[in-house]
Write a protein that binds this DNA or RNA. Structure first.
Lengths: 348, 348
DNA sequence: AGATTATTCCAAAACGTTTTGGATGTCAAA
DNA sequence: TTTGACATCCAAAACGTTTTGGAATAATCT
């Protein structure tokens, strides 16, 4: 690769002048500049970004560490998030460094290597956990970061985040089922260690309380956010909760798993079993039957994470650094609302 | 952040000795080494990766430039590919630099910035195009790269790649429809500029020829690889090709779009209209009805791209650098094979 | 003319590593 | 007592930039 030194040799000007000419400083003669630019083009000069990074102590790069083995993003989720992040970053000429946690390697090691190793100017965190040690670490390291998802309701959220109001979202979904006549409604939550789990739990409880339906702990299970978890929970419901007619799942993948499991036991989704999900993945519209779900704007979340992070990196943090987006209930067939038998669900 | 210099100040040893102690050289006294390691831990030393990169002229990073605005990856596709890439890269302690092409920015600029800027040790290319200028550039720049998808059949494929045998895949799918009794079968191809388009075209033609069915150019359309394109093609088929009873789509997204369009016109998929796709996205199993499709192992392709690229980067290219993986026909309901009315499709 | 001000250029330092090529001191062998 | 051999350490160079703080020359003003 051509370096400034090569251009210096070729044109006879010093490295300093070459650098300044290309950077557009006005203390270089216009004729000289043209000559240098021509030489740079001829030799196909591209500045060495690594050297720039070292010198400037900035990388023009955003980091994203993705969970992969234990709890991968839902299919269809990462896609959209990454696209939002990539688009917004690209527009500001930032790149995205994606690191998958090496198998057998401690997750924090990845963070320390990337952050301590000065590979990024800022980081995007996904899937907030209780007393998240990653957040504590980043704060101590003074590395700019934004988080997708706030802390659990009983913990302080003293960091910038983008989140959806999933409590209200689940509440709407549950209330919708109640309005359709359901009274025994199951809830499949994410694993307890995930911060947003409690918001979804509360949204469900809120809706029951508003309708005067007693809360039954037997109707609440934790799944693994994957299809298999949703299926397992549904089977458990079927075996232990005879009068149950509807299930709220904390994400679409579990809802799809639950649908399959119920269908496997002879239930007709939207007829003798209602199911709603959360996310509105592209999948869900095409599910069989199409899934009623709580939509969160994943692509947009990706974009806004970057739009929030960049000013923080540049030292101009906006006033609003904690952003809660609304969700939207998308009613399709899996809840039975658009079928003919609306309102006459069997009671327990 | 702590630097070697800080450790030097603290322990009294030179920067050289610190560096060599931590790197495990045997020309440093064991007691000294322990002392240095202890100091490094106390001060939370993390080597500056950027400085390392500059010095070593290696980045331990793989580049991936994703198409985003004009022709984004299918939802569910990038997910899996990225996970395969991330996992395999992580296992070898490589990171992945993902760059989204900035809006209004020429795509080649992204490549030049990343490659010429020395930001990566190697690159993964997706979506080979005809006479792909990216490939020409990378070869000239002597940057290691691997490609997901070979060149079009009439062009030389003189580069390392992983691909699936989509010609055989489409042929199987088409033959399957023929075996079910279909004779007028539509084909929705990818845009003509994509290299693999012609393979899919040929697979379709092969199957027709083997069954003695004449090829009809009116039954072949190009879509945009997105849902909308599949829907548009299906509507066009319905309006212009009265006797058509089946459509082969070049990816699942277009198949889903085609399904919706046909359903919108009153067709019952798997009964009076058969549809098959290509990819086997997670979506497809849950489609309504479940989509018959040609499965390609996307996650595995991601992994193998990395497993092929890394030895090339390290200067030990394997013998086999052009890998063709088999596909698998996944028969579900959208082709009608598993319905009761097998074999009695109306003829044109 | 001499003094000031522009204009145009550049040497050297710095960013944080790793590696090269010794330097220094110690100990055993001659 | 000298000579290697070995153990332990380190100064300096290099990776390719950008920036600092002038230097040299030419143009303009008293």
């Amino acid at each position: 690769m051509t370096r400034l030194k090569d251009l210096s040799l070729k044109t006879g000007f010093s490295i300093t002048t070459i650098s300044r000419a290309l950077a557009g400083y006005d203390d270089v003669n216009e004729q000289t500049r043209q000559q240098i630019i021509r030489a740079a083009q001829e030799m196909g000069y591209q500045p060495n970004e690594v050297a720039r990074q070292l010198r400037a102590q900035r990388t023009q790069t955003i980091g994203l560490i993705i969970p992969t083995h234990d709890q991968p993003f839902s299919e269809g989720f990462f896609d959209q998030l990454m696209r939002g992040i990539g688009d917004a970053a690209g527009e500001s000429r930032f790149d995205v460094l994606v690191s998958a946690r090496a198998a057998g390697d401690d997750e924090m090691e990845s963070y320390k290597r990337i952050v301590g190793g000065n590979r990024v100017d800022g980081l995007i965190l996904a899937r907030t956990r209780h007393h998240d040690e990653r957040i504590a670490y980043l704060r101590k390291a003074k590395m700019p970061f934004v988080v997708s998802g706030r802390a659990a309701p009983d913990e302080a959220t003293d960091f910038p985040f983008i989140d959806v109001d999933s409590q209200a979202g689940i509440q709407h979904a549950t209330a919708h089922l109640i309005a359709l006549g359901h009274t025994r409604i199951g809830l499949v939550l994410p694993p307890p260690e995930i911060a947003y789990t409690e918001f979804r739990h509360r949204g469900y409880a809120d809706a029951l309380a508003a309708a005067g339906i007693p809360y039954d702990a037997g109707l609440v299970l934790h799944g693994d956010l994957m299809r298999s978890g949703g299926a397992a929970c549904m089977r458990h419901f079927i075996e232990t909760q005879a009068g149950l007619t509807a299930v709220v799942c904390s994400n679409d993948l579990m809802a799809l798993g639950a649908m399959q499991a119920a269908q496997g036991r002879g239930y007709r989704i939207g007829h003798d079993m209602a199911i709603v999900g959360f996310d509105d993945l592209p999948i869900s519209e095409h599910a069989n039957p199409p899934l009623t779900t709580v939509r969160q704007p994943i692509y947009d979340i990706g974009r806004r994470l970057v739009e929030l992070l960049l000013p923080i990196i540049l030292g101009r943090p906006p006033q609003e650094t904690q952003i809660l987006l609304p969700t939207q209930l998308i009613v399709r067939e899996s809840c039975g609302a658009s079928s003919s038998r609306k309102g006459d669900w069997p009671s327990a």
